[in-house]
Design a protein around this nucleic acid. Structure first.
Length: 314
DNA sequence: CGACTTTGACCAGCGC
DNA sequence: GCGCTGGTCAAAGTCG
């Protein structure tokens, strides 16, 4: 079983099919650990707090998975999105949900730690940190993951990330990288790792919600860089040139596709601020999680989005 | 010099 | 209790 087959379940798949196939094809159970029925119509970008502007080169990779095997040399990165955690979806409580707390409370804790560091020496700080962790179970923010066929590990998504750790993954030659949003008081994290079944596939797992606009888009706006607004006058914009150039530096074959973006966004009545990754996620979520005919019909939107040969292959 | 990455150490959770 | 693993910390290094 591979990604292709999992994706091809799309058409008339039951809601469990994707998980079954993905988890079989990718030893990443940890990121697909949400239960049946927890997939909802809530866009995963809402989990990210994407009521904000959002730009990303990830969007350029929103393409249907090729019907060739994942290991084939398809130049186009592909994205498969899965929401991982249901906490924000008003779903029945899970063992995790009871330990979830708001980002603001965590920020308070961070402040406390800072004060402690000023007052105490390093050893004592560590002890207190330990005590804090003991008293407060590790919290788990809502998470979602998507798989991207890409040569670069860290994909641009419009936000700035700081790497804070890297760990070897059991049974995988590829390490997992840990990133944190660099914006103060935003505790969104993401993990990036490669599938050891298919090294060309990058699995990105987001955790938490951004509580701020995309800094890249902000800078873009301040600099007067024209954004590619669509007809609804949204703040949606394509990734900034710098971002794209960086990305394309590694991926000459990946091109911006404004028309694709427009055809993707407009028929779906996406929220105004849905940006690139948002749309990517939204697309896949619709396809995999909630293929409701009213919002997403393969012979409606898909024909707008996908090249005809892609449709044939599906 | 600030922002960021690297990397070894540490800790918590979990299974045996 | 012990060992393994995932996740995080933080000092040191790198880069622009």
């Amino acid at each position: 079983m591979d990604i292709k087959e999992a994706v091809e379940m799309d058409g008339g798949m039951g809601s469990s099919s994707f998980l079954d196939h993905v988890s079989a094809g990718f030893p990443l159970q940890g990121i697909f650990d949400f239960a049946e029925g927890e997939k909802s119509s809530l866009g995963f970008m809402e989990l990210l707090g994407v009521h904000q502007d959002f730009g990303s080169s990830l969007f350029d990779m929103v393409k249907p998975l090729p019907s060739t095997a994942p290991s084939s040399s398809s130049p186009n990165p592909t994205v498969v999105t899965k929401m991982e955690s249901p906490e924000l979806l008003n779903q029945p409580a899970t063992p995790n949900s009871s330990s979830i707390s708001s980002a603001s409370s965590e920020a308070v804790n961070d402040e406390q730690v800072k004060v402690e560091e000023q007052e105490e020496d390093q050893q004592k700080t560590k002890k207190q940190l330990k005590a804090k962790k003991t008293n407060q179970k590790r919290q788990r923010e809502p998470r979602f993951a998507f798989m991207t066929k890409s040569e670069v590990d860290h994909l641009e998504d419009g936000y700035r990330w700081r790497k804070y750790g890297q760990k070897a993954v059991k049974d995988s030659p590829f390490p997992r990288s840990y990133y944190r949003c660099t914006t103060v008081s935003c505790n969104v994290k993401k993990r990036v790792e490669r599938s050891y079944n298919d090294p060309s596939i990058v699995v990105t797992t987001y955790e938490g919600q951004h509580n701020h606009p995309s800094p890249i888009i902000q800078r873009q706006s301040l600099a007067g860089v024209p954004t590619m607004n669509n007809s609804v006058g949204s703040n949606f914009s394509m990734p900034i040139q710098g971002t794209m150039s960086h990305y394309n530096h590694h991926h000459h074959h990946q091109q911006q596709q404004p028309s694709f973006v427009n055809s993707l966004l407009q028929p779906m009545n996406l929220p105004r601020n849905y940006g690139s990754t948002n749309a990517a996620a939204f697309l896949h979520e619709r396809r995999f999680c909630n293929p409701g005919p009213a919002l997403f019909k393969d012979h409606g939107l898909l024909q707008d989005i996908l090249p005809s040969h892609m449709l044939k292959e599906e």
